[in-house]
Amino acid sequence: MTTTHSMAKPASFVVTNAVFIGRSIRLSLRNTEALIMAIMLPILLMLLFTYVFGGALDPTGNYVDYVVPGIILLCAGFGSSQTAVDVAQDMTSGIIDRFRTMPIRSLSVVTGHVVASLVRNLIATGVVIGVALLVGFRPSAGVVEWLGAVGTITLFILTFTWLFAAIGLVAGSPSAAAGYGFVLLFLPYLSNAFVSTDTMPKWLQGVANHQPITPVIETIRGLLTGTPVHDRAWWAIGWCLLILLVSLVWSLWSFRRKAGRR
């Protein structure tokens, strides 16, 4: 053996994060079931909403233009919920103890999962848009609007991934994490993602119009298909940043608490 055993220089911040991001992406690629789901789900949902429900919901045949943002968010929500499972898996297996005894910022384990989720879900978003274009989606957006839409989607994915990461950190096991995460996946249905909120009961309209998903949907829809955006973009960004901040603080807090507990 050739190494010396003086106090070693620890890995740099950049290397640490690069290693954990690489690990998480590799794990994503190896989790075959989740990967297939992440690609199949957008395709199936797109076909389902366009051909099965589409005609009933909008006989003019333009339903696909209406529903694309909703499906993007539904898939992104589903895709990022995997983060809760991945994080819980790491926190409940022995590997986290190894990382904690090393001179690195061990929270980077979580950051790695977050970045991998971002990559996975942007790809899934690409699949949704690809399939949408095939089944008749005709966006009116120019370059600026596309950038705006992709930016909004990215912020949304990042926000929900951190939220799921926090859930993964507080959950006692990967299956508990999956269970808690599941509840959040109903949010897109309680918005104007698939149908206009006008037909909902009054109390539900109140919920649907004021929950965070609705302004995000309206912003993306507006940017892609030219419906009015007004102040919805600010609401969308505001909601996302607020949830992101809360999730970050929550994650940090629970990571510290778990680290100190044993």
Partner: peptide, 18 residues
């Protein structure tokens, strides 16, 4: 301390998927 030590715990701390 972390820079000075290395630990093999009682239960394997390896990444199963790698």
């Amino acid at each position: 301390v972390k820079r000075s030590i290395s630990l093999t715990g009682q239960f394997a701390a390896v990444d199963e998927m790698l």
